[in-house]
Computed example of a mutant assay.
Amino acid sequence: MQNPGWSLVVHGGSGVIDRADLKPEQDRAYRAVLAQAAEIGATVLRRGGVALDAVETAIHVLEDDPLFNAGRGAVFTADGRVELDAAIMDGATLAAGAVAGVTRVRNPISAARAVMERSPHVLMAGSGADTFAASEGLAEVEPGYFFVERRWRALEKQLTREGVAVPRRPHGVSEDLAQAALAHDEGKRGTVGVVARDARGHVAAGTSTGGTTGKRWGRVGDSPLIGAGTYASDRSAAVSGTGEGEYFIRLSVARQICALVELKGLSLQAAVDEVIHTELTDLGGQGGVIAVAPDGQMAWAFNTSGMYRARIADGHPLEVAIYKDEP
């Protein structure tokens, strides 16, 4: 497929995701939400919308679903809190926005876009970012909104293994929903992201995450760091990553992929393979990326046992996959 009118790729995190780990109903649930996110983003692009809108709209689907480690389904910190990170970038202008450690914003990706479009800054963190999001009229929620039973149990297991005291269970949390009960613990590499190319040839990327289970000391990973977990440029590609953030930061994974395309002339697939299967793997890191180029190329690569993923383009049917042995 060459030069489509538009294209879009989605990921819902990489990690320990083997066929034996997921029950049939979990497999179906994840595929259904990935397909929903891809189709909603594609609808924006079919109607002539811009890549940024497609990215934000598709990520909302993933942030609102308790299956994924972003927004409503985010993992807990060692203190029993949810701290959310997100970033978005416009390949046409190199404008970018990000938030880190927010706790009240329902959709962190929209907070990141507000930083990009309605402030002079690129990255805001903590309570200041929450205050800014509220001042811009973004939807806020009570902390109990983010509670997912399986995520809490994952925290208990993690802290017990580390010999760390488990915090008191939050008060007043709602009963676990059937969908939330299907959430799978993919380890420390859960994130969601979307990249898109619109009919005008512009690309955009967005990433959103709850970080790692049991994180402490205000830890921030690669997702909200422009060039590490998120990057977009019309001169090369749009990239969103998922994996062990410390390694993605050290390698500037997203920007490195774009540099290989722009400066060395690699195809998009060759660039993502080089960074993930050679550079990241050689450093000892695990994870994956999705990417789309201004000419419509779509690519993904991961060195884990699975990555929740989907892609769709003008003239190209929807593909949804989870495991390594799928195309």
Rank of each mutant, 00 (worst) to 15 (best):
S233L: 01
R219N: 06
D198P: 12
T212W: 00
R189G: 14
V192I: 14
A232L: 04
V192C: 12
T191R: 01
G201L: 10
T213S: 08
R189E: 15
T209R: 01
K215Q: 11
H184G: 12
G241L: 05
L225H: 01
D198W: 05
G210I: 05
R200H: 13
W217K: 13
Y231C: 09
L225P: 04
L182H: 05
G187I: 06
G214C: 08
R235M: 04
T213Q: 08
A228F: 03
V220E: 10
V192G: 10
G243S: 02
S223C: 05
T212V: 15
V192Y: 04
R197V: 14
Y231K: 05
G241V: 08
G190Y: 02
G210R: 07
A204G: 09
D222R: 00
V239G: 13
D222F: 03
G243T: 07
G206C: 10
R216L: 08
K215N: 01
H184M: 12
T242P: 05
A181Q: 15
G243M: 06
T209C: 07
G243C: 00
S208W: 02
G206E: 05
D234Y: 03
D185H: 09
T212A: 11
G187R: 08
Y231M: 09
R200K: 14
V220R: 04
T213L: 03
K188H: 13
R219C: 00
A204I: 09
S208L: 05
V195N: 13
V192S: 09
G227W: 03
R235G: 09
T209F: 03
R200L: 14
T230C: 15
T191I: 05
S233V: 03
G201H: 07
V194F: 02
G229N: 07
R189I: 07
K188E: 15
G206W: 02
A183I: 08
V239I: 15
R235N: 11
R219P: 03
A183L: 09
I226E: 01
I226C: 01
G241M: 00
D222V: 04
R216I: 09
G187N: 12
S223V: 01
S240F: 03
G243D: 06
R235C: 05
S236H: 08
V195Q: 12
D234C: 09
A196N: 09
V194G: 08
D185F: 06
G210K: 02
L182Q: 12
V220Q: 07
T230D: 03
A205T: 10
T212Q: 13
R216S: 14
A237I: 11
S223D: 03
T207R: 08
E186T: 15
P224F: 03
W217E: 15
G190A: 09
A232G: 06
